[in-house]
Amino acid sequence: MGGAELMEINWQFMMTTLPLYQKAAWITIKLGFGGIVLALIIGLICSIVLYYKVKGLQRVVQLYIEISRNTPLLIQLFFLYYGLPKIGLTMSENTCAIVGLAFLGGSYMTEAFRGGIEAVSKTQIESGLSIGLSNLQLVRYVILPQAIAVTIPSLGANCIFLLKETSIFGIIAIADLMNVTQSVIGMYYRTFESLLMLVVAYLIIILPLSISLSWLERKIRYAEFGN
């Protein structure tokens, strides 16, 4: 096997293994989506806790953020999948994947939401209060519209980051893209074709998101600043 083999790309082979890759990509997307949605919810709740400085919970959230951001997802998954069952908490591999991703992602989403909330200046809030807006109306008409503009780029970047992190799910026996690639290489020795399909699969999953995010960022920048 050598460089010459590289030149003959076996398209037929790729066609036959395509279903495997499709299935694996689909699993990645589903698990990734689940983890992201959960992470967004965690992030929203935690950012509200931090903003209103809720007693007791504030410390817990801060601790959570530090732990989640300073440890790799791989270890978090191992701990969830192999460690927790030992104290009686067993979860399926899919559940572990989603929980792990949400645990990691929640802290990043919290930072994103917080950035948005804090971007709305105090004087804007006073301005709203001075025309008699209630707290709820303040959130709805003044804070939220402005916070979202700041938050969306960060949220989008976090989503892309989390989708990339899903590549690790193979270690807890999930038939994801990396696993499929490894098996295909192991069984058929079609290294180039399988790697190519792997890259294309991730491009298909992530590239559209990345491009839409850039487009969205540009649109928001225009709406806020007119340039």
């Binding site: 004087t123 001075s130 025309i131 209630s134 402005q146 806020e224």
Partner: peptide, 27 residues
């Protein structure tokens, strides 16, 4: 009524929307 040094109009609303927010939603 109060007017501040930094005017603080709501940047995501037009002039007329800024003015009408109070009368329509609060009053």
């Amino acid at each position: 009524g109060m007017v501040f040094q930094d005017y603080d109009l709501f940047p995501h609303m037009t002039v007329i929307e800024n003015i009408m927010l109070g009368p329509t939603r609060v009053q």
